[in-house]
């Protein structure tokens, strides 16, 4: 086993693109996965549920980062795509599809919708594309509302618990493993995507789409492919969310969530898979911490309740701004700095 290289011994471009340059990373990831797998044994159901949510948003954020961070196509419709995946899952689950079939199918449905709403990206970019995807958000959200109103408002999609070979994957513990597995697969697929021709084409389009076209990259096809992959991830995240919460309602998939998704990849690091993971974790856990803090402060000082509740949003905003100022490259860059420090630790030059 090789844990660290004391120089640059790469002789081929393939070596540059390896996910794990040495065994440290392999061991670290293996230990991390084993550790994550033990969580349900010693955490209370509430914390397991929070971890489940983190896993779900990791999948979604990795998806958005492929589109926005790596292909340079900004999207304000990511939460609507997640919602579409959730609704598709609700319908499929009610039609009797098992979860292992419903989740990828929901992803496929969402990917198709993503291609449709990605078509304007041929003509518009930057802020204009942001507005075009905002339209996707509004249109899909309107559709969810219409769907909800079919039964005069009494209709909401309830999703049965996932079962595997007769075993009920309860929402408290076992379904966490489904999310963990899916998130791990999603992360490794994304990491590998950028080692392929497709991934390099995405990066070329992000850096300069005219130059990319001049090099013979079919810009439109690759943009649509990026939209469809990103939406597939969003759809899978929505599908997991539907199973995890047991009920699908339009109120979760608003513009606010799309903005939160953007916050995740900006806080984590644009164009970085690791950044998506860190960003999703921070943006999911932070409001929960602030909520618990505000709640306990209000128990101590009940007369200042309204102040503490309002402060949550202010503190959340300040933290995000602080990230942008002090960590403009995102958490992923901080991680890289830490890794570099330990590369030669404790025997520094």
């Amino acid at each position: 086993m090789q844990f660290s290289a004391c120089g640059n011994y790469k002789t081929r471009y393939v070596d540059e693109a390896t996910i794990f340059p040495n065994d440290t990373g392999r061991v670290f990831v293996a230990v991390l996965l084993v550790f994550l797998a033990t969580l349900p044994f010693w955490l209370s159901p509430y914390f397991v549920f929070v971890c489940t949510l983190i896993g779900i948003f990791v999948v979604g954020a990795v998806g958005l980062n492929i589109l926005t961070g790596s292909t340079g196509q900004i999207s304000l419709g990511h939460s609507a795509f997640m919602g579409l995946g959730a609704y598709a899952t609700g319908l499929l689950a009610q039609a009797g599809f098992p979860f292992w079939l419903a989740i990828p199918l929901a992803g496929a449905v969402t990917a198709a919708a993503g291609v449709l709403f990605g078509i304007p990206s041929l003509r518009v970019k930057g802020l204009y594309l942001a507005l075009a995807t905002l339209a996707a958000q509004v249109i899909l959200q309107f559709g969810f509302n219409l769907f909800d109103s079919r039964g005069g408002g009494t209709a909401y999609l309830s999703v049965p618990q996932a079962t595997l070979a007769g075993l009920v994957l309860d929402r408290e513990r076992l379904f966490y493993y489904v999310v963990l597995f899916t998130a791990a697969v999603a992360v490794f697929a994304a990491l590998n995507l950028f080692r392929t021709r497709v991934g390099r084409a995405f990066t070329a389009i992000r850096d300069n789409d005219r130059a990319a076209a001049a090099m013979g990259i079919n810009v439109f096809a690759y943009k649509l492919l990026s939209f469809s992959i990103s939406s597939f991830y969003a759809g899978v995240a929505g599908a997991l969310w539907a199973y995890a919460s047991g009920v699908v309602s339009a109120e979760r998939f608003t513009l606010l969530l799309s903005v939160e998704y953007l916050a995740m990849i900006i806080v984590g690091g644009l164009g970085s898979v690791l950044g998506s993971i860190l960003g999703a974790t921070v943006i999911t856990v932070l409001p929960e911490i602030l909520r618990v803090a505000a709640d306990s402060l209000s128990q101590v000082l009940p007369q200042a309740t309204h102040l503490f509740l309002a402060m949550r949003f202010t503190v959340f905003g300040i933290i995000i701004v602080a990230f942008l100022i002090f960590e403009p490259q995102g958490l992923a860059d901080r991680w890289r700095v830490i890794k570099t420090y330990f590369n030669t630790w404790p025997f520094r030059y």
Partner: peptide
């Protein structure tokens, strides 16, 4: 915050904690 997901998370916290 009128958010069903938040309500569900809160209920799970209250029940298990």
């Amino acid at each position: 915050q009128y958010n069903p997901q938040t309500a569900l998370t809160a209920l799970r916290r209250f029940v298990s904690e």
